[in-house]
């Protein structure tokens, strides 16, 4: 490839009509760059889960991405309630989502575990009452 890309998308809490737009745009960027389909799928799934978390739980946030020859890194930062216990949030099936979110098909406690499953490196930093920053990296293998 030899050339990279970077960019930023803004996310709005509770805006369910546009939820997924940032991940969709990121996916389109990766497709234009000719990244392998399975790498794109893993990145898109992780980005979408992270985006939905912001839309469901936070007031607002942003998704930054950077693509190099060797990896895709994505940072999703939000202004939200924060995660009191990250270990617990990483447990499959653990959720604090209210019923109306569950009725939309989300909030079943699979989000963070699924992001971890699809990425090569994930870090979660959160301050209760301020927000959460999620950073993940997906290696591009040749």
């Amino acid at each position: 490839m030899g050339n990279g890309a970077d960019g930023i998308f803004f996310l709005t809490g509770k805006d369910f009509n546009n939820a997924g737009t940032a991940s969709s745009n990121l996916k389109a960027v990766l497709e234009r760059m000719g990244i392998a389909q399975d790498i794109i799928r893993r990145t898109a799934i992780a980005a979408f889960e992270a985006e939905m978390n912001v839309v469901i739980y936070a007031v607002a946030g942003m998704m930054k991405y950077r693509v190099t020859d060797t990896e895709i890194s994505v940072t999703v930062q939000d202004m939200g309630q924060g995660i009191p216990n990250i270990d617990l949030a990483m447990t499959e099936g653990y959720s604090t989502a209210p019923d109306h979110i569950r009725a939309m098909g989300f909030g079943s406690g699979m989000g963070l575990p699924n992001i971890k499953k699809n990425t090569d490196n994930l870090s979660v930093n959160s301050i209760v009452g301020e927000g959460t920053t999620l950073e993940f990296v997906i290696q591009i293998k040749d």
């Binding site: 997924g20 991940s23 969709s24």
Partner: peptide
């Protein structure tokens, strides 16, 4: 196959190919 019809279903399908 699903019983949900909101926009997130389409987004999910898009991301998961």
């Amino acid at each position: 196959i699903t019983g949900l019809t909101n926009a997130q279903v389409i987004r999910t399908a898009e991301m998961a190919a």
